[in-house]
Nucleic acid binder design. Structure first.
Lengths: 244, 244
DNA sequence: AAAGCGCAGATTTTCGAAATAATGGGCGAA
DNA sequence: TTCGCCCATTATTTCGAAAATCTGCGCTTT
């Protein structure tokens, strides 16, 4: 009994928090598809919590726009669309580029170290997954996504603004929902992926060189380019669907 | 029985939603002071709801940074500080000015009408409260705040970006907590207040004249000036506290 | 046949209480 | 006296079930 507490539940970790983390991860992973209903009974069976912590988690996710609620008709995963994606990307350019700019100005050696360190880890995972090709495991795809997040977080981590951090995280989560099908694709365009990594390297290099304008411009360009890739991917899927 | 339902509960209004609206309003009003604990028993007595809808509301407010939660130690109203205020103002300048710029570009006649209309309503309430001086009722102070919100909302309402709208609203709420002691002050500096209104008039005029640069610059300046006024007010209070 | 009505089943929302965790005060040991 | 421990109290968190609400189907009526 006591050991259960120690292993299963971290300090400061309520079931509500756990439910929030789990559901959010499952939404970002795409386990719950955009637009699909989140039925309490189903969530209860999946996670083993009762309604209360689940509802608390859903209410938090609602405030973060990952979930929408309809009065007395429950919750659904927020829909995705090209328009929504571009809105998220445009707003992310606004927030993250400003936070990045400030970080370049304010960041110290330690920050530079985090930028290069997280980039290195990202590139390792990236290249490894690229080599593995279709052999890559789910776990390895997750690690790549985690390191991608860590890198982008490091870039903007010294903005000195709590609000930008909050908004940046929210928008990262939102855009991850779109990025996922791209990263997780077993096949994918190897050439595109390599240039994606090269872009990130350039951003990291310009950042530690304190080349504010170039670094920020590259970041904005990268966000837009990713958007374009996803857009064409989504369109391709639509056509495939129509074809079958 | 049926009439109770009709009067007390709007369609599509759950107790959770009602609790959310009520607690948020009470936080913004300052009824729950920054840093003060939000005990469930106390909230239950105040609003008459049971724990579940109250906790749902608190979880949503937590995601919006109006409330902080400590695992197994409940919720508190988020603290205020000069640093936090400037962070909120700076971020608001970033978001709202961009949203304003887009609205000036995209807004049609209807938008112009809303800008002028909400400004007119704001100025009426403003002048009325100024005349009333110390005689002004709580209700009238609320009306002024509501119209102030409506005006600022109108300015950025045609940005076409849902994310900017969400963030803008969040930051408006946050900054309202700081603005409140200023607006609600019975006495206050009449000269300052008049120039505050004049600034808003200028913004509205530049907006409908589609003078993007001037309008946006005025908005940013207004945000900063408000921040400076609040800052001096807060410092004054500190000194008063020390003096007594 | 189409539209309206009402009922049965499914689902969400809300409640009250049990379980769990934090707090503060008193007591004993160093 | 001061520190640390234990226990009673208080508050939060979680649960299971009751209440309220929605959904879809079949029936009746026009």
């Amino acid at each position: 009994m006591a050991s259960e507490n120690l292993t299963e539940r971290q300090p400061d970790q309520t079931l509500g928090q756990l439910a929030y983390d789990s559901i959010r991860a499952d939404i970002l992973k795409g386990h719950f598809a955009p637009g699909s209903p989140l039925r309490l009974q189903a969530l209860k069976e999946r996670y083993g919590f009762s309604f209360s912590p689940l509802r608390e988690a859903l209410n938090r996710l609602q405030s973060e726009q990952l979930v929408v609620s309809y009065a007395a008709r429950g919750f659904r995963v927020t829909e995705i669309s090209t328009e929504e994606m571009w809105d998220a990307i445009d707003t992310r350019i606004l927030i993250d580029c400003e936070a990045f700019r400030r970080s370049i100005r304010r960041g110290d050696d330690d920050w530079e170290g985090r930028v290069m360190g997280t980039f290195h880890a990202l590139s390792r995972a990236f290249e490894r997954n690229l080599e593995l090709g279709a052999e890559v495991t789910e776990e390895q795809v997750h690690q790549l996504e985690d390191r991608h997040r860590a890198f982008h977080h490091a870039l903007v981590s010294e903005s000195g603004s709590n609000w930008m951090k909050v908004f940046s995280t929210q928008l990262y989560n939102q855009t991850q929902r779109y990025r996922w099908p791209y990263f997780s694709t077993r096949g994918g365009n190897v050439f595109l992926k390599k240039s994606y990594l090269a872009e990130h390297r350039e951003i990291a290099e310009r950042a530690v060189a304190r080349d504010e304008e170039a670094a920020v411009a590259l970041m904005a360009k990268g966000f837009r380019r990713t958007g374009e890739i996803i857009e064409s991917l989504l369109k391709g899927e639509d056509e495939t669907d129509r074809g079958t």
